[in-house]
Amino acid sequence: MANRTTNAKSKMEFNKVLLLMLILIVLFIIYVPIFLLILFSFSEGRFQVFPITGYTLKWYAQMFADPSFVKSLGNSLILAGSTSVTATIIGFFGAYSALRSNMKFKNIFSSSMLLPLAIPYILLGVALRIYFFNLKVPLSLFTVYLGHLTFTIPLAFLTIRARIAQIPMTYEEAAWDLGASRLVTLKEIVLPLSFPGIIASLLLTFTFAFDEFIIAYFLTRFEMTLPIKIWSTLITGFDPRVNAVGTMVFLITLIIVFLAQKNAFDQV
């Protein structure tokens, strides 16, 4: 009997070790390629092979000396900034209305607003390109902005709605009892309390628009975004500067997403 319990116990321990190993292997598989990218971005050699002979910052310097990289980086920053602000404002009002108004088809409204998140980006890119072509709208960064909004508005809506749903209705009712109008309540109660959700939404939609490739690829012609620039560099042949750009983009997004998730997990 005693033997059987020890057996069962050691089997349990064995399963635990297996599961912990799975976590470690997954982390390893996720992080090793990224680590390689960062390592090679500082490698002196033109080709990405071991052993690494020396370390240098020249790929970073060359990247910033290339006007087309700098230009596309600037384009992407402007695009992502304006997309995130617009999407968050529209998403905030949408989320507040969807939760607090007594509109008839509340649930249908909420779920259909999320539909753009349920189709592949490429479908939206193709559909909008054909649509704009037919309406004779010239392709530019502005059409990319319009395309990104289709995805980021639902994303903002989802993030902010989750936050506002945590705010007890009684807070607002108390403010009304004290004579505040709905607009004042919105500004004094709802806005400050949903602030972490708004920040999370700004950061997530920014990241999305900054990194998004396929919609932008369909919706712009001459003005490049950074992902398109990286893509065309990768497709036309090998260029060690890609390691440097990649490392930079990776670290920027990592920081932003980390901050966003911290805000999203924060409780009221």
Binding site: F93, S97, M113, Y131
Partner: peptide, 22 residues
């Protein structure tokens, strides 16, 4: 509360013009 629906309008219009119609 009924008038609050105005807040959802921009989103709904955007959805129609840049998602459903295309």
């Amino acid at each position: 509360e009924r008038r609050l629906m105005i807040g959802a309008l921009p989103m709904a219009i955007y959805f129609l013009i840049f998602f459903l119609f295309p």
